[in-house]
């Protein structure tokens, strides 16, 4: 749940990038950090392990300016995608305000996408949150790989697999080039702030 400091007129909200291993969550944050350096209110911090896999999380604090007189600060996190880091994913998800689910467009990762979305649903549920109610956007990442001859899932197929029931905003992206990264983040921030306004009457 977002942290509102009435005295300092500050609002801090937490957005988590979720998705299967190697889908490009960290790449999203790296691009955001590189592109929106002026908004960054601290360094991007990553805890990686063998083969550049995220061990705990990546963390990037951003300031997006004033809204209704309040300084809005974002804390962007990624979770480790590997299945074995289930407990860490759950910890990172605690007190989350908005989620960007990054799906891997590579055809052979279809099952991994679905399983990761189920894992998100379960972990949210354990915190008393609903995947249908939390501010959520979906990103279909790695669309650029079609050019390299890697078989990709058609976006329509991914929509059917992941977004048929949720019906949340979704974006095609190529995080490595920055395509769709800003749009994904922007939509997630918008939904998160709208939800906060409703919840907190802010």
């Amino acid at each position: 749940m977002a942290n509102i400091n009435l005295k300092n007129r500050e609002i801090e909200c937490k957005i988590v990038y979720y998705g299967p291993g190697r889908c490009g969550k960290t790449t999203n944050l790296e691009y955001i950090f590189k592109t929106f350096r002026k908004q960054a209110i601290g360094e991007m911090v990553s805890a990686n392990t063998e083969g550049d896999r995220t061990l705990f999380f990546d963390f990037l604090p951003l300031g997006i300016g004033k809204i209704k007189g309040y300084d809005v600060r974002l804390q962007l996190y990624t979770v480790p995608g590997q299945v074995k880091y289930s407990a860490t994913r759950k910890m990172v998800l605690r007190e989350v305000d908005g989620v960007a689910f990054v799906a891997d467009s590579i055809k052979v990762r279809r099952k991994a996408n679905v399983e990761s979305l189920k894992d998100l649903h379960q972990n949210l549920k354990e915190y008393g949150l609903s995947i249908t109610k939390i501010p959520l956007v979906i990103q279909y990442n790695k669309r650029d790989l079609a050019k390299q001859g890697i078989p990709l899932l058609p976006v329509q197929q991914m929509e059917r697999d992941l977004n048929r029931q949720l019906k949340v905003p979704s974006f095609s992206a190529s995080a490595i080039n920055g395509d769709g990264v800003g749009a994904t983040l922007k939509a997630c921030i918008k939904l998160t702030l709208q939800s906060m306004r409703k919840q907190l009457g802010w």
């Binding site: 291993g21 190697r22 083969g51 550049d52 896999r53 590579i106 052979v108 990762r109 790695k142 790989l145 390299q148 001859g149 890697i150 078989p151």
Partner: peptide, 14 residues
């Protein structure tokens, strides 16, 4: 070729 591409993406099992 697919194996090489998956490896470049870090998808080692694939």
């Amino acid at each position: 070729q697919e194996a090489e591409l998956y490896q470049s993406q870090g998808l080692l099992n694939e």
